[in-house]
Amino acid sequence: MKIHKVLHKMGVYSGILGSMLFLMFPIIWMLFTSLKEHRQAIAVPPVWLFTPSLDAYRIAVLLSPLGREIINSFIIAGSATVLSIVLGSLAAYACVRIRIRGSEIISYMILSIRFFPAISLVFPYYLIMQSWGLYDTHIALILVYTAFNLPFATWMIMSFFQELPREVEESAMLDGCSQLKTLFRITIPIARGGIAATAILCFMLAWNEFLYAVVLTSQKAVTAQVGVAAYIENPATGTNWELISAGAIILIAPLMLFGIVVQRHLVRGLTFGAVS
């Protein structure tokens, strides 16, 4: 009986370890590659022991367009996130605290926006941005990402507001607070954990977006995602895998840290309340 249990445990652990190896390995290998020098990076057979060097990162960020592109990504994703959270909090508060007829229908409509295929709207957006003179500007992508993130942010923040007890807000309003003041002074601070998680998810979506970044930019507002992908296509830089890896790791790293912070709310965010 005991042997049976030990074997079972061993089986479970090897299954988990095998899966984790598969999921972690590409990222880890990319990290190793980014710490090598060029000849080591593309050597066959692969080099396992080497002295790590941050040269690739230095070149990628300081000497190539990638540094500017990373800044672009930060500006665009950051602005879109701030806008989404501010406007989303207002709308979420309204839907939750104030009886608006048809708010459940609005909720489901918001949900279905998430499944919107990005490709279906690129063509009108391309033409609209061109005609407004916003092609290849930061504003174009900020507008697009805010638009796509706002319904999601509203939905998430709504679910966090719904969990708050009404008594605190009601006593504040009895003491003379207006609804707007209640929102900012009481509701948001109490829900700040969930709102932070929502902000991180919004940032992630804007930071990782690719299709609109490719379509709506060409030189000035190019985001880092497009920039790193362009490295590969450019024959001059296509084999500098230590640089490409450095760029990829720089793009992944902030999200990894954020992901660890937000992981408790991640399932809710990813499935919009379908589960737990």
């Binding site: 984790m20 990782n208 992908a229 999200l255």
Partner: peptide, 28 residues
Amino acid sequence: FRVLLIFPLMVSPAISAILWRWLYTPDW
């Protein structure tokens, strides 16, 4: 392990393509 599970999700589809492009290179 639950936390580690999140990491591929944090990687954008574009970067995941780049990661695997590196693994898929025929020669090296």
